[in-house]
Design a protein around this nucleic acid. Structure first.
Lengths: 167, 167
DNA sequence: ATAAACTTTCATATATTATTGAAAGTTCGA
DNA sequence: TCGAACTTTCAATAATATATGAAAGTTTAT
């Protein structure tokens, strides 16, 4: 396989994988491109390489920067901004997990907690409802705090401890 | 809060959460409804309660059954089929993880492995590409086998061991 | 073998989400 | 302060994913 073919394949696979994890295609592809590039790239470079519009590139770069995955580089003597992603890929995973916890999981946990507090009228349906939603609340809350602990650990801690446990 | 309000809130929250995890809204809501119902429900019951069409109900019930989360119940003397979900919710989580691994993660890992095998022509870009994709392959492969091990354990093993580690 | 009771399928409609690109905004050097 | 070089915004559009419902299919009792 040629480099160019491998590169295209990698970028499109990464993009497809991203969309199933709450990262849109363009965002994942920009990340993929920067991730394998030895040098920083300009917005122009990225647009051209991926064949996406200026607006799309701009918005998704901003997101990646907000997520701490990509950062701006100013090359000396150049007006243009360049971008690079020298961060470890686990940083991306960490960030994705954090975002999803904050945006989706935590609000849901709050609702579970709320609804599990209705008082029973003694009927089977309310009893069952309270029992099940409580169960779910406990599970979700535990899983979420696990996730956050993992996410906030040093990279190597997770790798060493958890891998040892499973491999 | 009244039971009906809590129920609606729970179902819509569960539906919203599902859509961000690769389960469509109707599928997640059907699961939610069955999950809190003390008795099996018919297709008619489900359609009516959630206000969704017959076709939608049928297709999503079939999916839930395929995933092993919901199953058919034949009540004595009744022609109609009934459905229930008496399984633990961790079974759902397990199933979701399994499906995603099979359908998304594993094919991606295969691609990573392929593309990381191109031979270097000595340029910085091919060197970087090979290095990064190999790194990614190792990470993804390790993470995936961890996931599968967790998923295939008994429910209590995960709960006990992992929670102990983090709590 | 027939028909009533029920379920599934799938072409079409609807809703959701991502992308474009031109206009507005910003920054910087002269 | 001006204007060239560049970036961001956002309304319009395109692409994608979901839902509908009528028709086709299946099962069962007689």
């Amino acid at each position: 396989m040629e480099f160019q073919e491998a590169k295209d394949k990698f970028i499109s696979t990464w993009g497809a994988l991203g969309t199933t994890w709450g990262i849109n295609k363009a965002m994942a592809q920009i990340h993929a491109l920067l991730f394998i590039s030895p040098d920083p790239l300009s917005m122009e470079d990225i647009m051209e390489d991926l064949g996406i519009s200026r607006g799309n590139t701009s918005m998704n770069l901003r997101n990646l920067i907000e997520w701490g995955i990509v950062h701006k580089v100013n090359l000396q003597g150049e007006r243009k901004e360049y971008f690079s992603s020298e961060k470890d890929v686990t940083e991306l995973a960490r960030q994705v997990a954090k975002e999803r916890s904050r945006r989706e999981i935590e609000p849901s946990i709050k609702v579970l907690n709320e609804v599990s507090k209705i008082k029973s009228d003694g009927t089977a349906k309310t009893e069952e409802f309270i029992k099940k939603t409580k169960e779910l609340y406990d599970l979700a809350d535990t899983a979420n705090s696990m996730l956050l602990k993992m996410v906030n650990q040093e990279h190597n801690w997770v790798t060493k401890t958890v891998i040892k446990l499973f491999k």
